[in-house]
């Protein structure tokens, strides 16, 4: 336990219950880090799984276009269900666990990701596809080396929206004891402990913007051809 050097006991910002309280951050660093890490891994696992499932669904829809209305309609309907209710509905299956939160977050991310992957693939110019076919590209090579790279800007735009939403939504997972920084928020409701609320809220927003910056950087690295156009 690290004690603050400047403030004597009773005078501390924790006792005065102030929003901004560096002493809280230093004295509870371990607890905060634990919840922050949980928040990060729940977000990363959810978004990665969401991307994999969304890609599979998008490819399925491309092969069987009749499925498009069903897939898009279902993911949109799930998206309409409030997060607290969805986590609650998953409770009998997965209990009080991070799995409950991750399944919910994956389902939510599908709405944005499936749409954006489909839009990106639809936006690939037909003559580019023709040219690749003419050069003897098979379906799989065409998809991975031509179509998906060209769809990347749309996919990444969707991924950014999905990731930022996922960071914010993870907090609600506190209801099943797996909400990352949301756990700090929920325990602070009863104690009215302002330093904890403020710290958790600020970290949440910082985390969302950090993820967004990382994705913007990744996109720049992955699409070097867009930079010459200043896009």
């Amino acid at each position: 336990m690290v004690l603050s050097e400047e403030a004597p006991a009773g005078e501390s910002c924790m006792v005065r219950n102030e929003w901004v309280c560096p002493e809280y951050v230093s004295s509870r660093a371990e607890l905060i880090t634990e919840d922050l890490l949980q928040h990060v891994w729940i977000t990363v696992v959810s978004v990665v799984l969401g991307l994999v499932v969304a890609l599979a669904l998008a490819l399925l829809v491309r092969r069987y276009p009749k499925l498009e209305d069903g897939v898009v309609g279902t993911t949109t309907a799930i998206y309409t269900v409030p997060s607290l209710a969805l986590f609650a509905l998953l409770l009998p299956f997965t209990g009080l666990s991070a799995t409950t939160v991750i399944i919910g977050l994956v389902l939510y991310s599908l709405t944005i990701l499936v749409r954006n992957i489909l839009a990106g693939l639809d936006g690939v110019p037909a003559d580019v596809v023709e040219a690749a076919r003419g050069m003897g590209y098979g379906e799989r090579r065409l998809l991975w080396t031509v179509e998906l790279p060209l769809a990347l800007p749309s996919v990444m735009a969707g991924l950014r929206v999905a990731t930022v939403s996922t960071v914010a939504l993870t907090t609600v997972g506190a209801i099943v004891s797996a909400g990352g920084l949301g756990n700090l928020l929920l325990t602070a409701v009863n104690t009215q402990f302002k330093p904890q609320v403020f710290t958790a809220a600020v970290l949440c927003v910082l985390l969302a913007f950090t993820f967004d910056l990382v994705l913007v950087g990744a996109q720049r690295l992955m699409t070097p051809w867009t930079r010459t156009r200043g896009a």
Binding site: V164, T171, L185, V189, Q192, K194, V197, F198, C204
Partner: peptide, 16 residues
Amino acid sequence: GRAVPTFAVLVVLAIG
């Protein structure tokens, strides 16, 4: 609006 968690805002308002 997307980056700010609803839950955090609710707690800040309710105990603040």
